[in-house]
């Protein structure tokens, strides 16, 4: 029995749902803070919305990696060939950086976003600075995304 396709799919699933969990938690936390601020200062809507959406990107990175994997194994776009166990495992491994890094960075970015929302509530003109602090955390999700993309791209080229 060939497990290759299953393993690759598992990788795609992991990338989507782990990064998705992270983003949900992050955006959720920030959303709670944002709603609180809006009760007092409705005019800050666009600012807190931006801060709130910062941890949403990890979920998208996860989706992106999952999509690349599905495309790589031919589930999307047709032409699904034989996927060897090794190839499947490689895809699974390639999904891990964004899965794990997405999960944790989104949660912690969410915390920074909450803090940023509080800062903006008190001093709306510190928006620029408040935006940069959560963006620091996101760097690590971006690095993970990069490795996941490069790895998936490389597996295709290996021709196993």
């Amino acid at each position: 029995m060939e497990l290759g396709l299953f393993l690759a799919l598992l990788g795609a699933a992991l990338a989507t749902f782990m990064a998705g969990i992270g983003s949900s938690i992050g955006v959720g936390k920030a959303g709670v803070a944002a709603a609180g601020v809006l009760a007092e200062e409705p005019s800050l809507f666009s600012k807190v919305l931006i801060l709130m959406l910062l941890p949403a990107t990890q979920g998208i990175y996860g989706l992106l990696v999952a999509f690349l994997i599905l495309q790589g194994v031919g589930i999307i776009g047709g032409g699904a060939g034989e996927i060897s166990n090794l190839e499947g495992l490689l895809y699974l491994a390639a999904s891990l950086p964004i899965a794990a890094s997405g999960l944790f960075s989104a949660i912690h970015q969410g915390k920074c976003s909450v803090a940023g929302i509080h800062t903006v509530a008190k001093k709306p003109d510190t928006m620029g600075k408040s935006l940069i602090i959560p963006a620091m955390v996101e760097t690590y999700a971006i690095l993970a995304l990069l490795i996941s993309i490069l790895a998936i791209n490389g597996i295709g080229a290996l021709g196993i």
């Binding site: 992106l64 690349l68 995304l145």
Partner: peptide, 9 residues
């Protein structure tokens, strides 16, 4: 990374 994200999504 962000460039790819836009295109792929």
């Amino acid at each position: 990374a962000l460039g790819l994200a836009t295109g792929v999504v």
